[in-house]
């Protein structure tokens, strides 16, 4: 037991705290606000990815309407600020309630059936919200979008002179949602959800209330996404239906998770820190609107075909074993020996 704890310390706690310290100190070494901005985007996309992963990764129910939940958070923040001068912190509970109601309606209806119904319903829903946002011009600014004007730095308004405070805020958010996912993964709902992904018919035949479990995961995912959306809105200070509420935004979130590793705690972060800088770079090099976006589509297709478990697979024990075996260091692991013994016995 003691060695196990020691092992855990060396393999998990130590490297993680090292990374955390480096991340916390980083802004002191970097003068460029641009790099900080990209880093904040990475953190926030990690958060979105982690939330999306709850329902789509663990549960295998691919959602294409997470952009709507982001929009709920962002629009609520900016509208409340512009119309009433209220703080984003008041927008948090409001957008949580809104996204809870919406996810409940969508989930209640579409989770009763299996297959692609959920994905199709989310696509349709996202499309409708986008069209509504575009057309209720008086309220949403239509396709021109709305901006939150700068009225001086204040934490209460989540408004700062540069992006460094956001760097820390989004880092804390990321740690928060990762912790929630971690707990979620180990909860009963988490186990049932994975079973549903494994084989939904079997899960039903064993008494698991599949529609309720999927609904719970979707609600949690939606509510958390909306909370992050509030911060995202305060960060970018500008919302426009086609960019923030289009299916493209949902696909970007999905791509981040899939590239990193679907259904894993760390995958979204790895994905975000690979894809977002890559796309920023492509933006600079290619300049065109389409060129950089093209990468998302390519990355998505490539990873699903080549290694559906994502980049995180490269770091997995399984892959290390495979490489070790290939290199001929083939000392068999105890677990494998037991496995073989099991076969002989039976």
């Amino acid at each position: 037991m003691k060695t196990e704890q020691k092992k855990k310390w060396i393999h998990q706690v130590l490297p993680l705290s090292c990374i955390a310290i480096v991340i916390l100190l980083l802004p002191f070494g970097i003068q460029s606000n641009y790099i900080i901005t990209v880093a904040v985007t990475c953190f926030l996309f990690s958060c979105f990815g982690v939330c999306w992963n709850m329902i789509s990764g663990y549960g295998g129910q691919i959602s294409w309407c997470h952009a709507v939940f982001v929009s709920i958070g962002a629009y609520t923040t900016i509208l409340m600020n512009n119309l009433a001068g209220w703080s984003p912190f008041i927008a948090i509970p409001v957008s949580m309630i809104l996204s809870f109601i919406i996810s409940t309606v969508i989930g209640k209806i579409s989770f009763r059936y299996r297959g692609p119904f959920f994905s199709i319903t989310t696509i349709a829903f996202a499309e409708i919200v986008r069209v509504l946002l575009l057309n209720f011009r008086d309220f949403t600014g239509g396709s021109a979008g709305i901006t939150r004007p700068y009225i001086g730095a204040s934490f209460w308004n989540l408004m700062f002179e540069n992006d460094t405070p956001f760097y820390y805020i989004s880092f804390v958010l990321m740690v928060g949602v990762v912790y929630i996912t971690y707990r979620f993964e180990k909860s009963k709902t988490g186990y049932y959800l994975k079973a549903i992904k494994g084989d939904e018919d079997a899960a039903i035949s064993l008494g698991i209330d599949t529609s309720r479990i999927k609904l719970t995961a979707f609600q949690l995912s939606a509510v958390l996404t909306a909370v992050i959306g509030v911060f995202y809105g305060a960060f970018i200070n500008y919302v426009q239906p086609n960019t923030i509420c289009g299916m493209d935004f949902s696909v970007q979130i999905g791509s981040v998770v899939i590239v990193g590793g679907l259904g894993t705690v760390w995958g979204s972060m790895i994905g975000a820190f690979i894809l977002i800088p890559l796309i920023e770079l492509a933006n600079i090099l290619l300049g065109a609107q389409g060129g950089a976006q093209l990468l998302y589509g390519l990355a998505l297709i490539f990873v699903v075909i080549a290694q559906p478990r994502g980049v995180i697979y490269l770091f997995s024990k399984e892959n290390r074993d495979r490489i070790a075996q290939k290199l001929g260091k083939g000392a068999k692991k105890t677990s494998e020996k037991i496995r073989e013994k099991g076969r002989e016995d039976i």
Binding site: G60, I62, P116, V251, G254, G290, G297, P308
Partner: peptide, 27 residues
């Protein structure tokens, strides 16, 4: 390459393809 795999994989690939083509025409 994804035929016969899980329905998630087919959803993801066709959506990825859609995203790719949509941006390809811009390029």
């Amino acid at each position: 390459p994804v035929l016969g795999k899980s329905s998630d994989a087919t959803i993801l690939v066709t959506v990825g393809l859609s995203f790719f083509l949509q941006n390809l025409v811009i390029v």
